[in-house]
Design a binder for these strands. Structure first.
Lengths: 113, 113
DNA sequence: TCACTATATTGCTAAGCAGTGATATAGTCA
DNA sequence: TGACTATATCACTGCTTAGCAATATAGTGA
């Protein structure tokens, strides 16, 4: 299957899908959870203790991340083990970090030329 | 394949900056405006007519994009000419599109193996 | 000056959502 | 069985924001 080569406007459904993924990544708490999982799979309690978040909140955010298929859930006895299912998100974050750093640098230069 | 250097957790400020940029990119109307501008700089009216959006809304979204330094504004007489200031956003969208397509493919395969 | 155009802003409504405490569900072990 | 643990869900509050109509601002040309 061949896909759009370069600059074709996205169809509405694609556009919505892209916006949805960005939306999932637009909450600091979810980004923190993803960073935590980057070191390896973890249970809800491990995340709660590692990030000092409330359990209800972590479960909720993990639900959102799971629905978006950014993480995946594996039941292990009494535990739920979550892991990264879309490593691409770290590429995205790295790109954004770079641009954020560039912005900050440009901004600093603009303030003190 | 180059491996990214040991992933250190982002500091809160960086985290917030990343989340903010993702948030800016999480609205379909803003993505549509960015796509429109990908073909070249445009005025507010051109965007309004090209995308069939309300003028007040376009001005508002352009303001948000400008604050985030994703686009930049150039006053030309009575007009405001907007252009892309952060071409990286198209790299981000391309990556996301790819992952969205992958997801759809995997999903389709899961439904009809 | 006035009329006209392009853009920005204001005030509003409705919807969405993060975070929380309480509670429900489900698994484990005695 | 019952006590305990891990996780999910519910009900709610407060905050944010997209979209809109109306209005304000600013530039142009007469």
């Amino acid at each position: 299957m061949k896909k759009s080569p370069a600059h074709r406007p996205l169809e509405p459904a694609q556009l919505a899908a892209v916006a949805d993924l960005f939306s999932v990544l637009s909450e600091p708490s979810r980004l923190r959870i993803l960073q935590f999982l980057q070191r390896g799979p973890a249970t809800v309690t491990q995340i709660v203790e590692g990030l000092h978040l409330k359990q209800a909140n972590v479960s909720k955010q993990l639900g959102i991340l799971t629905t978006a298929r950014v993480v995946e859930r594996q039941q292990q006895g009494n535990f739920a083990r979550y892991s990264i299912a879309m490593p691409l998100v770290f590429d995205l974050c790295a790109l954004v970090c770079k641009s954020v750093a560039d912005l900050a640098a440009r901004h600093a230069k603009a303030l003190a030329p």
